[in-house]
Amino acid sequence: MKAKVLILYGYGINCDNEMQYAFELAGADAERVHINQLITNERNLKDYHILALPGGFSFGDDIGAGKVLATKFKYNLQEPLQQFIAAGKLVIGICNGFQVMVKLGILPGMDDDYRSQQVTLTFNESGRFEDRWVYLDMLPSKCVFTQGIERIYLPVRHGEGKFIPRDDGVLQKLYKNRQVVAKYVDPAGNQNPPFPWNPNGSVDSIAAICDGTGRIFGMMPHPEAHLFPTNNPSWTRVKATNNSLPQDGMGLQVFKNAVKYLKNS
């Protein structure tokens, strides 16, 4: 049976089409579903294996990025969502989707509490929106989506991507539980790089986290924007040097991992 993915769209979510295509390339059945279809029970979360929250500007980023969509979930779909998580299913949020997840509290989901906010993503240190490609190093973690990836090259496109934990206790706990999934590094792989390699001033250069089980995952950079080798900004240079291009874009592995996990579980 093919993995069934619910790609949330509507209300200013923007990256739903490419996210759907990413999961299709990875071998899943991906359906774009409007949140109002969930609220009216036209669609039910329990019928899907993966919930994907794509990037975009839900509700125009008004009040705070992801905030209003998070409240929409919380005050209309909290129980179905909690049941979905408890049932061992997968959730991925990219960029705006990640912002929704942390404000909703389903990330980092510490001590099996998927309801309270422990970290945030807020205005970039530069005070402005940035579109640029960044290098990420993966840390050893249980994250289902990043297994087998060591370094990945992806675009960030956000104005509010600066990761801040509630306090040092939360941060240390994230490390201890291996919930820090990815960090920004410079092209040589050096840790804790300055701007622009850490594009938003995130604490400890953190770009992605997961819950304690590794099934709930959020990340600021966009793997669905690197599905093809020709998405890579250096591809004409790579081609001139090697006379060939890799088969896939680096981001595709994230989606393949999810589908593979479901197949094996």
């Binding site: 990256c15 579109d131 004409t236």
Partner: peptide, 16 residues
């Protein structure tokens, strides 16, 4: 100027 516009959304970018 260029950096503050999202030129990657929709995943369609080939020559940046």
């Amino acid at each position: 100027i260029v950096r503050q516009f999202d030129h990657e959304v929709q995943g369609t970018s080939v020559i940046k």
